[in-house]
């Protein structure tokens, strides 16, 4: 059986090819790509992909038909690689179930057949070995694919997939701003210690004085919706690693901590001296944020003059 690497992607996350390239360099296997949606103007040949299968249209509402298509046509894939988002994570699970192969999520290090992944709520690194074929889900934005050569045309085949059994009734867009909190250098993160949405002004002022991005804990984005989800730091929000992380009025639930563990210097500001977050900080200020933030902002501005 000829083995190969299959990378599944769409226009929005071409970075994932970087993962396929690393696996190709480690194993010598060739890369095939399954390109979903509009693929005009993309030549994956430049990135070392030999064959491209283009699937037009159909958003991935039901992962089942695509998973069946992959199972039937790419039985010889040793590594199936796809980007990390909620839609692909549903596909990866379904594919695992059909193909009876495991899934590795966000490996931090991979030298097939060895992988390292974060585990136990991001508090540990687990070293794994997988001899069988495996599905790898990774964050596309963390990788930069190499252009091996210009004008190397990959063979493109158009394929189609049957519709699934789920019926899409409606789609509502989410407001997407330009916040890219994963890349922020400094973050001022806010939590339930703020009594109203208007009070966030105090943190926004501090963030401006510091040249920081605004982050938040789960309730502010998911329940109260004071900030959009791009600001949400945590296990189910975004994972961040700024040089300086200032948490204001956040108690420090493990799910939040898991999203900011990799930060450089961590400052915690909370009126409650028993807030669990104080155990995971470099500097903790026990004070009412309503009094401390204005003073802090003023002093930082003065310092810059």
């Amino acid at each position: 059986m000829r083995l190969m690497i299959l990378v599944i992607l769409d226009k929005g996350n071409l970075g994932i090819i970087g993962v396929a390239q690393e696996v190709m360099e480690a194993t010598g296997l060739t890369i095939n790509a399954l390109l979903l949606g509009n693929h005009e103007g993309i030549n994956l040949g430049d990135y070392g992909v030999s064959k491209v299968y283009a699937i037009n249209g159909s958003g991935l509402i039901d992962p089942a038909p695509l998973a069946r298509f992959i199972t039937n046509n790419f039985n010889d894939a040793k590594y199936i690689i796809m980007p990390d988002n909620k839609v692909y994570r549903t596909l990866s699970g379904y594919l695992s179930g059909l193909m009876n192969i495991p899934v590795i999520i966000n490996p931090t290090d991979f030298k097939p057949p060895s992988f390292k992944v974060n585990a136990v709520g991001n508090r540990a690194i687990m070293e794994l070995e997988v001899q069988r074929p495996v599905i790898i889900v990774a964050q596309a934005a963390r990788f930069k694919p190499k252009q091996y050569s210009q004008g190397n045309k990959a063979m493109v085949t158009n394929v189609s997939v049957e519709p699934g059994s789920l019926k899409l009734i409606n789609v509502e867009g989410k407001s997407i701003s330009n916040v890219r909190i994963e890349e922020a250098d400094i973050i001022v993160a806010v939590g339930r210690g703020f009594k109203s949405k208007d009070d966030l002004k105090l943190a926004i002022d501090l963030a401006e004085a510091l040249g920081a991005q605004l982050g938040c804990s789960r309730p502010l984005a998911a329940d109260l919706k004071w900030l959009s989800e791009e600001h949400w730091v945590g296990l189910s929000g975004h994972r961040v690693k700024p040089r300086l992380y200032i948490a204001v009025g956040i108690s420090g639930q493990p799910q939040h901590l898991a999203g900011m563990m990799e930060s450089g210097v961590v400052v915690v500001i909370n009126i409650d001296k028993n807030a669990p977050f104080f155990k995971y900080c470099d500097y903790g200020v026990v004070e009412d944020l309503y009094r401390l933030l204005p003073a802090l902002t003023r002093k930082i501005k003065e310092r810059r003059r």
């Binding site: 540990a124 687990m126 563990m261 001296k273 104080f278 900080c281 500097y283 026990v286 004070e287």
Partner: peptide
């Protein structure tokens, strides 16, 4: 399985 060890200084200003 190895714990990710982040040593924080834990200086409290109170």
């Amino acid at each position: 399985i190895k714990a990710i060890q982040v040593s924080r200084r834990g200086i409290i200003i109170d």
